[in-house]
Every structure is written in structure tokens, then in C-alpha cells.
Design a protein around this nucleic acid. Structure first.
Lengths: 209, 209
DNA sequence: CAAGAAGTGGACCGACCGGTCCAGTTCTAT
DNA sequence: ATAGAACTGGACCGGTCGGTCCACTTCTTG
């Protein structure tokens, strides 16, 4: 077993590498991302790269972990079982707020998301994204099921179906807000984010009236 | 201008080619799809291929048109301006129903969807899928604005915001259905498409009660 | 200072890619 | 029968890819 001590890379060079590689993976997916482009952009020779990393997949995995860590840490701070009928929606609101703030303050998180979704269906990147998504999906599923037990969320749709749609909605809302950011005043931003949130409520609330 | 008379291919061989190529494109995206694999699977030599087609993009475009034509024809059969408060939702429902039935009856349409979504973000395939999607977006915008005039759709959100979300929802629903196609029986497929439809209703109906 | 470990530059490998080219075959129309 | 168009097999091209290899330099440790 040959060692590939990527941790011995100077911290700033490591960060620079992951920034470049996440961009490349985000733009092209796993297979089409070019290792040659990545290292040449960084000014690193191939032998150096293969000294620190086992192969392309290794780089991909480490990039993904590096770049998604803050997001993955976020949801672990919530104790789902403790949520009640009254606290569920407000808690979600708070998480969404924190996540939004996080993304707003560090644009490289957007890259993380792009990279993730771009590589999700790619052979080679699939197993790794799958693995990481699994964790998040498990959490989301628990949250939704808990909400369903409380009667706060509808129970008539497959979980995966619901989750996929909610995610797509969240992403498209984000994209719209970012795109129209400059045309909105502060009130407009508040309004639209409130409206977006209410769309989630509309979708998730059980049938009634 | 050299001619590439793909229409001169025997109909059955043409169909076989498009079936193989749509599978390849669906599985691998535009760039990663291998022309060599496609023609060798068909038993066609390269010179023959380049006799009938200009290049890989040409094959992609023709495959896409061949395979999506029935879907694209569908929405052109509706006269938006003629829709009234009473007929708007039923008409949409009917379109969705027809589309579902169509896909149910010909599994190669599933391949069309897979191919479309797989290549949507791929450089090379992007312009062509974009082109086809653009047509559909224009149509959807007209439909929504008409519905708002009638008071059937909410008017409290920016058009572009609403449309972006609706498109994202539609695409993610489609994606989910296509992905889980084999695990569903015909009833399950109808149910989920019905459920998806009701999600659109939830999002679009004006505030009340 | 010396010896070995850590790190690096760059030529090189085999595989695959889309696309070209041309000699040769088969078809069609006179 | 024959000229010319239509068609095809397969060698070949330049390019990119991930990955290997080895000689060389730099750093660390005794």
C-alpha cells in the first residue's frame, strides 16, 4: 500500500487545488473533467500530483469532502426527534436561513452544489456522490417522516419523489434570487424569500379544506 | 456543401440506429457517448456513417428530433387563447394525461426523456436541447399569463420566478418518473403523474380560504 | 558532511476519441 | 456493356485522456 499524503500539501496550495478541481468537476462532471487541466492550471506537475493523490477518484473524493463539509455539518446540529408540531416549521425556517446566509457569505459553496449535482449521474463520480447524498437523504427522510407522524406534512407521496421536487424547487428559487439580486431592494428580497418559503408550505401541507 | 442523405438509409436500419444512439446518449451524455460504440453495435462502418451523417452532432440532432417529435407535437395542438376559466385546468389535465399515455405505450419515449435530461447540461448537446426546451418555455409562459388574466392562476409572484420554479418542478418530476420507471406498474405511473399534477395546482392557485 | 527520504519535471505509454481518406465494390441508368 | 454515382471496409490521423517511470533536485536527519 503506497501512501499518498495529500495532507502534507501546504494548506493554501491544497485549498487552491480543491477550488480549481471543484470548478472543473462542476463544469464537466467526473469523467469529462480533465486532470491535466486541473494540475496545469495549478502549475503542478503530474508526478507531484500522483505523489499526493492515488488517482483521479481520490482527488474527486477529497474535493467533495472538503467542499461539502460545512453543509453536512449543518444538519447534524438539529435533533429531529425533539421537534413538535409547533417547532417544526420554525426550525426548518431557521435552517434554511442559516444555509442561505452560509451560501451568501461563501460563494464557493455554490460551486460545491454544482459539482455535486453535475457529477451525480456520472459513472465514476456516482458512487461517491451517492454515498454523501445518502447521509443527507437519510436525514431529510427522517425529518419528513417525523413531520408526517406529527401530521404536519402530507403522507400521500413517495418520500424520494417529494424530496427531489423540494430540492429542485429550492435550487431554482436560489438561482432566481441570485440572478435578480441587483434588481431587488431589501424589501423585495424579504418578500420573495417569504414567498418561496410559503411555496414549500403549500407543497408539504396535508390535504384539507 | 456535401450532402449527407440520412433519409436514404433503409427505414428499419435508420430506426435501429436511432434506438442505439438514443440509448448511448441517454447513458453517457453527448460528449461521452461513443460514436465508435454506436456504429459498431449497429454493424456499420465509419465511412458508411459519415456518408449518411455530417458528424456526431448531426446524429444527435436527428436522434433527438426523431425521438421527441411526438412529444413536441402534443402541445402545439392546444389553442391557448381559446381557453376559459372552466376549460383551462381540464385542458392541462388532458395534455398531461395524453403525454402519460403516450409514454406508457411506447417505452422508447422514456429513452427520449433520459437522453434529453442526460444531455441537457452537456457541452455539445446543450445548444440543441436548449433549443427544444426554449420552444416549450415560450409556450408555458403564454399559458401562465393567460391563466393569470383569467384569475385561475395566482398573480402575486413575478412571472419569471413562477415559471422557473414550475419548469424545475416539472423537470424533476419527469426525472423521478423516468428514473423509477421500471419499479412502477402502469397504475403507479398514472398515480404519480396525477399527484404531480396536483402539485402544480397547489402552487398555481390564488390565495383563498 | 553524508545518506536517505521527500518531492518534482517531463518524457512516455496504451487506450480511446471524432473524423478523414481512398481504394475497391455494388448499384443504376443509358 | 459501360460509365458514373452510390456506397463501404478499414487503415490512418492528430489529439486528449489517466496513469507510469525515472532521473534529478531538495529537504531532513544523524
Amino acid at each position: 500500500m503506497i501512501e499518498h499524503p495529500s495532507h502534507k500539501l501546504p494548506t493554501d496550495k491544497r485549498a487552491a487545488l480543491f477550488q480549481i478541481s471543484s470548478g472543473e468537476f462542476a463544469a464537466n462532471g467526473f469523467k469529462q473533467a480533465s486532470l491535466n487541466r486541473i494540475i496545469s492550471e495549478l502549475g503542478m506537475s503530474k508526478s507531484s500530483f500522483y505523489h499526493y493523490f492515488a488517482n483521479k477518484q481520490d482527488l474527486f473524493r477529497q474535493t467533495l469532502e472538503y467542499v461539502l463539509k460545512p453543509v453536512l455539518d449543518l444538519h447534524q446540529s438539529v435533533d429531529i426527534k425533539a421537534l413538535t408540531t409547533d417547532t417544526l416549521w420554525p426550525s426548518i425556517m431557521q435552517i434554511v436561513g442559516e444555509a442561505t446566509r452560509m451560501v451568501n457569505s461563501s460563494p464557493e459553496m455554490v460551486m460545491a452544489g454544482r459539482m455535486f449535482y453535475r457529477c451525480y449521474d456520472d459513472p465514476g463520480g456516482h458512487e461517491l456522490t451517492q454515498e454523501i447524498l445518502g447521509e443527507f437523504t437519510t436525514w431529510t427522510t427522517k425529518l419528513i417522516q417525523h413531520g408526517q407522524v406529527l401530521g404536519v406534512f402530507r403522507s400521500d407521496l413517495p418520500d424520494t419523489f417529494l424530496i427531489e421536487i423540494l430540492m429542485a424547487m429550492g435550487m431554482s428559487m436560489d438561482r432566481w434570487i441570485v440572478k435578480n439580486w441587483d434588481e431587488l431592494d431589501e424589501q423585495g428580497r424579504m418578500d420573495i424569500s417569504q414567498a418561496g418559503f410559503s411555496l414549500f408550505v403549500r407543497l408539504l401541507e396535508p390535504d384539507k379544506c
